[in-house]
């Protein structure tokens, strides 16, 4: 049995040691970002759990979950948006997604866009009856609170649907799900190949950062540090290009003739189609109820 190199083991990509950027903040932050990326790419433990969504073919799961996200963008009322969020949470529970993951990363990802919605609550953006004065001439309004709450809930519902798909599907199989949405075979092949080599390119970028960190005691001037970043990108492009040539030659050696090919050994079964039908019915039901509640 062929074993993976040590650096490809999920435990090897732990961003914790690069936590406090004091010296070389740019290098350390870049390094931490590369390690987080590697951890996300290599850790497929959430997708390996036994649960409802993990057992489904991504070609059906992707249209179902992304369709629910699209429904969330069409809704007008808060109850309907809460219903979509509730459905997503129920699916997460049935898929045994740990609560820590559910309420940790899942709240962090939409945090920035959701916080950006907060100014909408002020009368400068959304006029209405004042409910909380902020400073002379500016106050939080009832209509503003409603608009901000609706936008935040919409973002949360959409992001939860996407994260459900990602956290219950192995990265290698994730893009096969796009076939279910009508994506061309070549596009899916490119995406799958990109994700496969993303870890290798991120690893090369991590090495460039580590080399810089291990060879310099003190950071240089701002100009020197900026030049290093640009040179690092140039060096990474050089390595990426060489790798691309190697991969191309390896593909030729394996008989590649330009035909896009995907390893699709299974076909969606009755269970998958039943799930898709149920999700379509739920999505349509929520949308119709929202429309019926008076827009």
């Amino acid at each position: 049995m062929v074993s993976l190199p040590a650096w490809m083991h999920p435990a090897a990509a732990d961003p914790a040691p690069i936590a406090a950027p004091r010296r070389h903040p740019a290098v350390r932050r870049g390094l931490a970002a590369m390690l987080r990326l590697l951890a996300a790419l290599l850790d497929d433990r959430p997708a390996a759990r036994r649960g409802l969504l993990q057992a489904l073919d991504p070609r059906v799961k992707a249209p179902a979950l992304l369709g629910l996200a699209v429904v969330a963008t069409l809704l007008h009322g808060l109850p309907a948006l809460l219903a979509v969020y509730g459905v997503a949470l129920l699916l997460a529970l049935l898929s045994r997604i740990p609560a820590r993951q559910l309420f940790g990363a899942w709240l962090l990802v939409p945090l920035v866009p959701a916080l950006a919605a907060l100014p909408a609550a002020v009368n400068v953006i959304t006029p209405g009856a004042p409910v909380l004065p902020l400073w002379p001439g500016a106050s939080v309004t009832d209509a503003g609170l409603y608009v901000a709450a609706r936008l935040m809930l919409r973002i949360l519902a959409c992001v939860t649907c996407t994260l459900l798909l990602v956290n219950t599907t192995r990265p290698a199989r994730l893009f096969h799900g796009l076939r279910g949405l009508g994506a061309p075979k070549l596009a899916v092949m490119l995406l799958a190949m990109m994700v496969r080599y993303l870890a290798v390119v991120a690893r090369a970028a991590e090495e460039i950062h580590l080399a810089k960190l291990s060879r310099t005691l003190l950071p240089g001037t701002l100009r020197q540090e900026q030049t290093w970043v640009a040179a690092g990108m140039g060096a990474l492009f050089r390595r990426t290009r060489a790798l691309g040539e190697d991969v191309y030659l390896a593909m030729l050696a394996r008989g590649y003739t330009g035909e896009a090919a995907l390893l699709e050994t299974t076909r969606p079964g009755p269970r998958e189609w039943a799930f898709l039908a149920a999700m379509a019915a739920i999505g349509a039901g929520i949308w119709l109820l929202d429309a019926g509640m008076g827009r």
């Binding site: 190949m193 080599y197 290798v200 690092g232 492009f237 790798l243 691309g244 030729l252 330009g258 896009a260």
Partner: peptide, 23 residues
């Protein structure tokens, strides 16, 4: 024929350079 690996690797490069932090 060359386009597939070059573009896939080019996309990976694009992704990673967005993570380089510039002081």
């Amino acid at each position: 024929l060359r386009q597939v690996p070059l573009l896939a690797l080019g996309a990976a490069f694009t992704f990673v350079i967005m993570m380089f932090n510039v002081p």
